[in-house]
């Protein structure tokens, strides 16, 4: 026992996260300094710490850099068309209500092309866990202005600075009716892991925004340095305010970042509301859907 480090052949030891990944696809295509890998790392650790039953998990991604998460995770996953991750996940959830469906996608996919699906899934309180990795730009297509690009940031299609006001994503999710809204950055790895655990165990529409550096496009166009420089900026400028009013958590270019769990409330999910409504309407003639499996 005392001379363990000498006896054990260290190179044969494998990263404990590797069983959760499709190892034939590793190394992944994300750039050096990109935060998507770190956010996925936190997600896998949350699954590992919860001992989550992987047969009851489905991961759905859209298109984009973050959309490749579904391809790297060694669970049941689907890589959908652009922006349609939430409709696909809704169908998956309603087809098999005992699945936990996680939508893991980027800001361009969820809020530009799929923005309409997002607000309606939140309005219905569909039982989904939506993770949005927000890197303020369209990474895969070359750094165009996204609906989350802060005012004043330079992008390929806005060479003199962006003048379009961006979305405040937690406020959007909150006002549409999400039951859990949180924002963390990839600097806050432990809090992010905890937020993933809370999101995986929460019922209803859960929204988690993860701020992530994009060193190749967003940071380079704005001369903000590499991924580490952005993480240091997150470390300096982020303020933890749990329960903050989501109207006040908007982001500005290199300004303060309010992080934390903003909303945590209870509302009947779409399936519960449907079962209750039809049970009241039709009494014993109605067979509740998905209830017998939910224990």
């Amino acid at each position: 026992m005392s001379s363990l480090a000498v006896n054990v052949e260290l190179p044969e030891l494998q990263n404990p996260l590797m069983p959760y990944l499709r190892q034939d696809r590793i190394p992944h295509i994300w750039c050096p300094g990109c935060g998507i890998g770190t956010s996925l790392n936190a997600f896998i650790r949350a699954l590992d710490e919860m001992q989550f039953d992987l047969n009851k998990l489905a991961v759905v991604s859209g298109i984009g850099c973050t959309g490749r998460v579904a391809g790297y995770l060694n669970v049941d996953s689907f890589h959908t068309t652009h922006g349609r991750a939430i409709p696909f996940a809704t169908g998956l959830k309603l087809g098999n209500p005992d699945l936990k469906v996680v939508v893991y996608s980027g800001d361009g996919d969820l809020f530009a092309i799929g923005g309409n699906h997002f607000i309606h899934a939140a309005r219905r309180n569909m039982d989904l866990f939506v993770v949005c990795v927000n890197n303020f730009t369209y990474g895969m297509t070359g750094g165009q202005v996204a609906p989350t690009t802060p005012l004043g940031a330079t992008q390929t299609t806005m060479p003199y600075g962006n003048f379009e006001p961006p979305f405040n994503l937690p406020y959007l999710a909150d006002s549409c009716g999400a039951v859990y809204v949180a924002r963390w950055t990839v600097y806050h790895v432990r809090q992010l892991t905890r937020a993933f655990k809370e999101g995986l165990s929460k019922k209803g529409f859960v929204f988690l925004e993860v701020l992530s550096p994009c060193p190749t496009l967003y940071s380079r166009r704005n001369r903000l340095g590499d991924g580490v420089e952005q993480l240091k900026y997150y470390k300096e400028k982020s303020v933890v305010k749990n329960g903050a009013d989501t109207r006040d958590v908007g982001l500005s270019f290199q300004g303060d970042i309010v992080v934390g769990t903003f909303v945590n409330r209870e509302r009947p999910t779409w399936l519960e509301a449907m079962n209750e409504h039809f049970s009241q309407r039709f009494g014993d003639r109605y067979q509740p859907y998905g209830v017998h499996r939910e224990d």
């Binding site: 363990l4 480090a5 030891l13 996260l17 890998g37 790392n41």
Partner: peptide, 22 residues
């Protein structure tokens, strides 16, 4: 380091946990 690594290349381990991991 293992929690931050975006490429799953590095992880740290305490010597007392090495045997369990092996």
């Amino acid at each position: 380091c293992g929690l931050y690594c975006p490429d799953y290349a590095i992880f740290g381990v305490k010597f007392k946990d090495l045997e369990k991991l092996a």
